[in-house]
Each structure stands twice: as structure tokens, then as C-alpha cells.
Design a protein around this nucleic acid. Structure first.
Lengths: 120, 120
DNA sequence: CAAACGCTTAGCCATTGCGCTTAGTATCTC
DNA sequence: GAGATACTAAGCGCAATGGCTAAGCGTTTG
């Protein structure tokens, strides 16, 4: 298991998931997947004011999902794949837990003849 | 590609990521990975009051990460792996974007010799 | 039947999140 | 050097989040 991830970011899962919980920020990640871009370039598709957009960038940067660098007056952003790898690692760990446990789960579902909320 | 996920839950990514952004809720997911459990059983490891804990359960249920059923006075919870699969799908889609693009990204990183605004 | 149990509802409170505007600062460009 | 450009800082408003307590409600147990 790659521990560098765990040590650095394990406690950062909060921030990473939080960062990814917003459609604007996920769209930014999507755009950056095709290569680095400047702030205004990233902001262009969105209707919101630039300072509002900047907050999203900060959230992404603080969480470690992106890295940025300023050259002159232009700040360039790039995706930081390590953060998404952390999510992938967590997902794998979860999957490892419930795999081979479908027996119990199916049993639970089979018994659920009442839809969701049993009438009182 | 399995589209049923995309159609049903694509707009639910907000809720799923939001649900996973809390350590208590991730711990619940972890516990449920080992099999279904009742509310009080799930709440036991946590210091918070039961109504506070219930809010986490509701967040998890609304997001689709878990399903619950009430038998008598006991509500049993189980993990809903489909929600985590949605996250996995999204992650894969992102990975697909930035894979084969390491050239550009490495170039960006190589140029980042300026330690002024470079986060870690 | 009464008491204990397992939630569940309602509402309070402090903090955070996400949008806005207004007003900077620091580069370019001419 | 003046003006445009590309952010950046500060602060406002409102809704949502995450904790709490107090009280209620149906179910099981003695």
C-alpha cells in the first residue's frame, strides 16, 4: 500500500470530498483534466462574479485538488491527481469491505418488503 | 458503459460527495461495509447525542449512500453500494481525461520553480 | 398496565458556505 | 505614464450544516 498518500492526505478526505461536492468545482476539475488554464479562462463558462469563482478555486487549492502558480498577473491552475487518488484509495478500501458480503446485504434487501418507511 | 447510474444519480453527485465529506458519516459507511446495523448500534462509538447522529443518518439516506428499514422500534441501516459506484464512475471519467496528458502537467510542474505561491 | 427502549420531532445556536458588490493591487500594453 | 487587464481583499446577506436539549411516540418487556 502506498503510504505517502495516507500520511499526507488521510485526514484531508474531508476537504477533498467537500471540494468535490460542488458542481462548479467538479466542472473546473473536468476542465483542468484537459490541461492547465488561467483563472479567467476557467471562470469564463460560469455566470458568477469573479470573486465568487475565486472562492471555488481556493477551496480546490486548499483541499489539494489543484495547484496554482502565478506568473506576472496571471494565475495558472493545474489538476493535482494525487488528491483524486486519495479518493480512489478510500473507495477501494470500502469496496474491499463489502465485497464478499453480498450474502448479508441481499438477505437484508429480501426482507425489505415494506418500501422504506413502515407505516406506524 | 452502464447508463442507469449516470441518469439516475449524475445530478446526485453533489449529495453523495457532501455526505462523504464528514468523518462521522464515512465511519458509518465503513461500519456498514461489514454488514447492516441498527441506529443505536451505529451511534454507539460516537460521543454525540442521538438526534445529532440521526441527522448524519438522514444525510446518508437522502444522498442514497445507505438504505434503511424499520422493524418494530428498530431501524436497520445498510450500505447502498450503487452510490459509491457513482463516485467510482466519476473518478474513472476524470482519470480518463488526464491520462496521457502527463506531458503537459509535468511541464507545468517543471516550470514551477517559483516557491513564492507554491502550496504543498 | 407500567416502565424501559429506540428512535423521532421540534427548535435553538454558532459556524460555514456560496453568492454578491465595491474597491483595491500588481502587471502588461500602448 | 495612462489605461486596460487579471486577479485579490474586504465585507454583506442568506441558507445550510452540525452540534445541543427537551419532549413525544410507538414497541417491547416485566
Amino acid at each position: 500500500m502506498i503510504l505517502s498518500h495516507m500520511e499526507q492526505y488521510q485526514s484531508g478526505l474531508d476537504g477533498i470530498f467537500q471540494a468535490l461536492a460542488d458542481p462548479t468545482r467538479r466542472a473546473v476539475i473536468g476542465r483542468l483534466g484537459r490541461g492547465p488554464a488561467s483563472i479567467s479562462e476557467l471562470a469564463e463558462p460560469f455566470e458568477m462574479a469573479l470573486p465568487s469563482f475565486m472562492k471555488h478555486i481556493h477551496v480546490l487549492e486548499r483541499s489539494g485538488c489543484i495547484i496554482t502558480r502565478k506568473d506576472g498577473r496571471v494565475r495558472t491552475c493545474a489538476i493535482e491527481t494525487a488528491a483524486l487518488a486519495i479518493v480512489g484509495d478510500w473507495l477501494s478500501a470500502q469496496r474491499a469491505l463489502w465485497e464478499g458480503r453480498t450474502d448479508r446485504l441481499e438477505q437484508f434487501l429480501a426482507e425489505a418488503t415494506d418500501p422504506k418507511e413502515t407505516p406506524r
